[in-house]
């Protein structure tokens, strides 16, 4: 699968851009957190597209962002 670039994204409508980023993110997150992949992807899609692109290019950054998202998610879902 070819890397997603800013110019590729720029050609798509905004809604489609998130979809493209989401597909990439989901397939990277799924092997790490199969049960939470959809939620984590949803959280990361709230980030700026340009920042998501950087994450997709940097596995280490993405991994740390995923762990951050998991922590937030678990705290959010934890009963009080």
């Amino acid at each position: 699968q070819e890397p997603l670039t800013a110019s590729m994204l720029a050609k798509a409508p905004p809604q489609e851009q998130k979809q493209m980023l989401g597909e990439r993110l989901y397939h990277l997150i799924y092997p790490l957190h199969p049960s939470l992949a959809g939620k984590i992807t949803g959280m990361l899609l709230e980030i700026d597209n340009s920042e998501v692109l950087l994450l997709l290019e940097s596995p280490a950054s993405l991994r740390s962002k995923i762990e951050e998202a998991v922590t937030v998610l678990q705290a959010h879902q934890a009963p009080e």
Binding site: G22, L25, G42, M43, H76, Q77
Partner: peptide
């Protein structure tokens, strides 16, 4: 205490058009 948005975050499903926060029912 209000019923906080327990459904956050919206969930992404591959192949399904992403609607972002609109995925969450009001």
């Amino acid at each position: 205490s209000n019923g906080s948005s327990i459904s956050w975050p919206p969930e992404f499903h591959p192949g399904v058009p992403w609607k972002g926060l609109q995925n969450i029912d009001p």
